[in-house]
Nucleic acid binder design. Structure first.
Length: 298
DNA sequence: AAGCCGTGGCA
DNA sequence: TTGCCAAGGCT
């Protein structure tokens, strides 16, 4: 039987955003025709909490060297960690390598298109699973990242910032906006993210050039200040364990031989903090204890 | 479930 | 200068 899809009241928003996106989308590598599901997957890993401009060079090197999951799976994880370079959060390199092994062994080397199969891969959570299904395979799923949440909070809810992430509520809100058409839906998932990334930005949004400013609830309410719960503030980086971990990882990446305890001891003045950072890297599988020092995981 | 996990650009 | 924050995920 034929069911007429409900047309959401906000249909104009998705139409306007898609038109704007078609005309204004940045020319990014993963938007090129035929970029492939593996490239999309690698880009999504790298883009987790890392800006586009820092990702692009590492991504292109990565795909030139490992054009398939099987190619990455065939080298030791240490090579993935080295190629990750200073992108940050090096556990992602380990997880991406593990995912490549799983794709090779469990999926015949083909990146899955099913959200549950994607979620079962190491390092893939709700956002990345949906992003791969939507962007690599064109499936109609709501994809919700921090940009999308901010645009919805402002344009639809009339708040200056999104409230803390809530999976069910966020997916419901995006579902109300998502066009019925599979092709328009795929476009819209990218369009709303792009708007949040380049126009409806966190700090100084460019409302003067926003394609949906006339439909924006936040603007209509004259930009009220956000009053909800605030996101937990990041601890200071200088002097943190994260900084010490970063120093140790840079040292491990810099050579193919093991790094001695004596060399590691020169990296940080506080021995207790150094040992704590080292222990956490070992727990993460990023540093492996050897005879008189440490190496990357081979 | 709140805290942890890198790095660097920008206002 | 310093704090904010960036296509999250894991425990």
């Amino acid at each position: 039987m034929n069911v007429t899809p409900l047309i959401p009241a906000t249909d104009g928003v998705s139409t306007a955003l898609n038109a704007w996106f078609v005309a204004n989308a940045r020319d990014l590598p993963w938007r090129r025709d035929g970029f492939g599901a593996w490239g999309i997957l690698v880009s999504e890993f790298m883009l987790q909490q890392t800006p586009v401009n820092r990702v692009i060079p590492r991504l292109e090197e990565w795909l030139a060297r490992w054009p398939t999951p099987a190619a990455l799976a065939a080298v030791p994880p240490s090579e993935a960690v080295r190629a990750w370079s200073s992108l940050g959060y090096p556990r992602r390199a380990l997880w991406l390598h593990a995912a490549a092994v799983q794709i090779t062994e469990l999926h015949g080397g083909i990146v899955p298109s099913d959200i549950d199969e994607l979620l079962a891969l190491t390092g893939i959570g709700d956002y990345t699973a949906r992003a791969v299904a939507a962007f690599a395979y064109g499936h109609r799923h709501p994809v919700v990242d921090t940009n999308t949440r901010r645009v919805i909070a402002r344009a639809i809810a009339g708040a200056g910032e999104p409230s803390p992430p809530n999976r069910g509520r966020d997916l419901d809100a995006m579902n109300l906006l998502l066009p019925q058409s599979v092709q328009e839906a795929a476009l819209f998932n990218a369009a709303i993210m792009e708007l949040g990334a380049v126009v409806c930005t966190s700090r100084s949004p460019h409302c003067d050039v926003c394609p949906i400013r006339n439909a924006c609830a936040w603007r209509a309410a004259d930009y009220p200040e956000y009053t909800g719960a605030h996101k937990t503030v990041q601890k200071k980086f200088a002097g943190s364990d994260r900084q010490v971990r970063g120093l140790i990882m840079a040292e491990l990446r810099s050579t193919h031989r093991s790094v001695t305890d004596a060399e590691i001891n020169t990296l940080w003045p506080d021995p207790a903090q150094l040992q704590r950072a080292l222990a956490s890297l070992v727990a993460d599988g990023l540093a492996i204890p050897v005879r008189d020092g440490y190496t990357l995981p081979d």
